[in-house]
Every structure is written in structure tokens, then in C-alpha cells.
Amino acid sequence: MRRGETLLGLLGAAALVAAALLAPWLKFILTVALAKGIAVIGILLLLRAGQVSFGHALYVAMGAYTVAFLAPAMPDAAVLLPAGAAIATLTGLLIGLFVSRYREIFFGMLNLALSMVVYSLLEKLYDLTKGTDGIRVELPRFFGMALDRPGFEWAMFATALVLALGAGAFARLYLDSPMGQALSAIKTRETRLEFMGISARRVLLAAYVISALLGGVAGAIIGMTTRHVTPLLAYWTASGELVFIAILGGAGSVLGPFLGAVTFELVRIYAGAAVADAWQMILGGVLLAVILFAPGGLWGMIAGLLRRRAGAAS
């Protein structure tokens, strides 16, 4: 299965590059989708522990706003991206220290509450953040190179793709490691974990901080790609979107988040193009269909197909 996953991942990456080459406008959509996929990898880690965060858009917004604030002083993607990730990680550590004490609905709601606090601050500190109108990000350099717009868009797409592959591979290794196994143990029976002398809180905290880091990376990419950052990034619907993508893609594999994110963005774009009035209904219909007929998400469907073929071959 694992080799199949790697193979599928690389195939998927190749397909994305082909799509971006064929349609320049898709490159933008796919960059954003890849960034969201990276953030959803973080959601996936927490899901492994049975915890759903309804506030992870907070870290995406942290990454994006770091880019927006730093860009005038240090307009280079090589600085902005790590800075966005670092700020999000620090915030994640601070918040993680106390939310990792809570489980399930309390965990989800606390995250939601904190993300909404940050949303309100971004909106209300008008002189600092320009409120709902948001902050414009001028075209940054890329590792010292001053690129034109198409060049920079390619650079961001490539960065997002490389980081997505990296995040996927990392999550795969992490989930197989004792830390990852301990996450599953939190879901099945936390008390047993404590009896083995492992602190469930620390295990969850580690996963939480990693998820914040991935959120920050995603936010920094989104900030540099859309080049206009608004508080809506931290709004609860944005957090809900990340959970939606996780469910749509399926939590069974690290490919799920990317499958989910690309499908989500494409469905939204095409639904919006087909019926500008009722795209929400189509998106909701897709989610309902996945929940009702494919509880393992899109990845579950693919894995089922692969298993059946493997079964037929043997």
C-alpha cells in the first residue's frame, strides 16, 4: 500500500504540473489548493488522535498576515515563507499548551473561539490591519531573483508542490513513528497511553504544533499567491473549509488532503461558473454524497478500487 501511495502521489504531482502547463489560470487555483492541502495535513494529524479543530484557519491567517506585514520590509519569499511558518508555530505552541488539555468538543470549540478572537482583532485593529479591506502584498522576490508575475506564479506553484510532497512524506513517516502511533492511541484509549508512561498531552501538543506550522506554511503561500490578505482567512468558515476538505479527501492517507483540496477548489470553481447562484448547494451536495456513500472520502474510494484490483490479480 505504502509504495502505491508514493507512486500515486508522484503521479498526482505530475498531473498537477501538466494541468498547470495547459491552463495558466488553473496554476493559481492549484497553488491555493496545494497550500490548503498542506494545512489539511495538519488537520489529519489531529484527526488521527480523534480531535477535530474548528479553528485552524487561525494559523493560515497567521502565516498570511506575517507575509503581509513583513513584505514591505523584506520582500523575498525565502524570508517570508519561513517567517510565516515560524510565527504560526510559536502561536501554535502558546495556544497548544492549554488546548492540548482538552478533548473532542471542548478542543474543537476552544480552537474555534481563539480563531474568532484573532479574526475580530484583525478586523477591529483598523489602523494596523486596514480591517476588512485587507492588506495588499506586492510581488516579492524569490531567493533574491526579481521575477515577473508569471515567473513568480510558477515559482510559487513549484514551492507549493515541493512543500506539499515534503509535508505528505513527513506526515507519512510521523504517523508511522511512535509519536504517530501514540496519536492513534489517544483516539482508542488515552488511559492506556498514560499507563505506558507516555504523556498524552505532550503527544497531542507535538502534533498540534506541527499542524500550526503546516497551517503557517499554507498561509504564507496563500498570502504570496493571492497577494491580498483579508481577515476572512481566519473566519470560522475558513476553518470549516479545512475540515470539509479533510472529510472530502479522506483521513486514511496523506494523499487525502490534497485530493480533497484539489477537488474542493475545482468543484467550487466549476459550480460557480455553472450556477453562480447556487454553488453552495452543489458543494454541500458533494459533501453529503461523500459522507453518505463514501465514508472513507475520495481516498477511501481509490483505495477500495486498488484493493479490488490487487485482489483480482492474486
Binding site: 489560470w25 493571492t226 491580498h228 461558473a273
Partner: peptide
């Protein structure tokens, strides 16, 4: 006329702007 909903936010809108212009 081709219409696009502005409600989902900036990041969606700029994607739609590109789609309309480039596709």
C-alpha cells in the same frame, strides 16, 4: 455577461477573476 459570486472571499474571487480573463 458572465457572473461570479463575490461572497466566498478574496482568495476565491481572484481565482475567478483569472479564470474569466484567462480561460
Amino acid at each position: 455577461a458572465l457572473f461570479v459570486d463575490e461572497a466566498p472571499g478574496t482568495e476565491h474571487l481572484v481565482g475567478e477573476f483569472r479564470r474569466l480573463v484567462q480561460s
